[in-house]
Amino acid sequence: MLVGAFACAHTPQLLARPETEDRELVLRVHAAFARVKQRLEALRPDAIAVIAGDHIEAFFLNAVPALAVYVGAECAGTFGRYRYRFPIHEPLARALVEAGIERGFDLVYTQDAPLDYAFYVPLHFTMPAPSVPLVPLHINVYLPPQPTPKRCYEWGRALGEILDSRSERVVLMASGGMSHFPGTDRYASPAFDYDRRLLDLLSAGRGHELAAVTAEELDRAGNIELRTWITLLGAVGDAKADPYCYEPSWHHGNAVVEWPVGEASL
């Protein structure tokens, strides 16, 4: 069953801060991550299913899956001086692939792919103790044509239904967002107003409206990674978002959000 839902920024500058980054801002995002960790400790999940956009790391141009599930025994990756290794909740990962395929989603699965900071940055700060196995879920966000927001929402709805049919307590965590434009002329001018309107809409429980946004709109607003959030929204329906923080840095709208679901919404 789905017992919790969160979205977390994953900018690597939150983990390894260069001098270009405002230290106080970084610490405020860390404080929001600490709240997520406390919630995870209270929710006692059996697995955390992390929905992340691939930063052209797990997959290159030899194969660009729109939607993929990592079904290895464990996952590993590095960032700077950090070496990460997490066990996978293999029965759940396998069940998501099988039930997803059964429902008509032509999922790719992999047992061998390096995972990147989209997975590790939020988990570095939010992984509860004792640690919880993962199910990494990939969405293609950087290599057009990406899956449509509508398709992401539908995959999320299917995920929610599949999870609710399972006995494990599962937390969904969407990694990424909000507005940023790495590698482009707009790097230093994200669309913060777009982000704020989006957070208002999510706080009003109108998340389903995001299933209708276009790929062009997401690209224009620096929100191609919002596909991970939209996938999560398919699972949480119109639960009202509880934003823990929105911290716009000079290049990135950093948000941490919870959607109270299950017992938390009662």
């Binding site: 983990l15 390894a16 052209i56 700077g80 001086r81 590698g183 482009t184």
Partner: peptide, 30 residues
Amino acid sequence: LVAHGAHPYLVFMADLRLRMEREAMTFEYF
């Protein structure tokens, strides 16, 4: 590079990785 068809994110991260090593950028690790 982008005019030649390079993906902007790959340009960005390749450059960052090189600068991290060449310039020995200093970081505060958390």
